[in-house]
Design a protein around this nucleic acid. Structure first.
Lengths: 151, 151
DNA sequence: CTATATTGGTTCAATATCGCACTAAAGGGG
DNA sequence: CCCCTTTAGTGCGATATTGAACCAATATAG
């Protein structure tokens, strides 16, 4: 590829995805209390949706981040009283992460606070287009996930 | 939204986008020399494609990052001899960022190194689907960009 | 059972991100 | 001109990310 060529399709897709990710993350973080950022919300949301009591390592795998990053993120949530760590009764090695009431409440409040923006997007943007791209994005994500070691 | 509902469509789309962004960034960074990460490539690539001599502030706006982040990224590129900073001849305040030969060469080499992965993706994945989603992603990115202050 | 390998988690250090505060240069009334 | 606002860039501090090294608990091989 020279500088004159249009970038390859795949390249363009990842480029747009990168920008959208950044802009949407900024929107999310605008609705989070000081000291908390997107990964904190990601963990809270995961624990609500999948059920709490998960281990840090399981979540590190779910989010595809190094375990040290998850340690740090969970520690931040503990510091803010949004989750609790307990020893895993099934073994003496791993731990479990449990939501506190404050954690559940904060997650719900953030979603409620953002809903007007989602509604505006739904008004201004042809939602059927999002419906169309979602399965392709999912397929692409799964492809990457499966080929993580080779790609 | 309660924890029982499926998350709203928009939410799911951003979720997939976030994961894909992370996985593709990891792939890119696997092809970068030690000490350089995705934002460094982003700037090199931008300077090749749009033309060098751009100012740090213009690039901060292009990438939608705070100017302090761009200062830091450009400083890293300077330290590695991939770009040069020059005073802007049009005013006494701003600066210009120019590629060095090493910068051009590195950017080209990274793209060449990644091309087998792109080709495999093109083989394994139905590329016409990417063709279909690209305009929607672009539209979504533009929507966010335009509503950055309100959303 | 013992030795070794694997696994979950933390600590530490290097680097990244970004808000705040600051300086210097422009630009715009008056 | 002078004052005031805006703009580009930097320094600094707080927090984030992540690889390397480490520890403790398990699992496995012999």
């Amino acid at each position: 590829m020279t500088s004159q060529d249009a970038p390859p399709l795949v390249f363009q897709v990842f480029n747009e995805i990168g920008i959208i990710e950044q802009l949407s993350r900024t929107v999310l973080e605008a609705h989070m209390p000081k000291g908390l950022i997107a990964p904190h919300f990601g963990v809270l949301n995961h624990l609500v949706r999948v059920g709490d009591g998960s281990t840090p390592m399981a979540m590190a795998r779910a989010f595809q981040v190094p375990k040290t990053s998850m340690t740090h993120t969970v520690a931040g949530l503990v510091k803010h009283g949004l989750v609790e760590m307990r020893p895993n009764p099934e073994d003496g090695l791993s731990k479990q992460v449990w939501l506190t009431e404050a954690g559940r409440t904060l997650r719900a409040r953030i979603i409620i606070d953002m809903s007007p923006q989602f509604e505006r997007l739904a008004r201004d943007f042809d939602i059927s287009k999002l419906q169309d791209i979602l399965p392709v994005l999912t397929e692409l994500r799964i492809y990457f996930d499966e080929n993580r070691n080779r790609v």
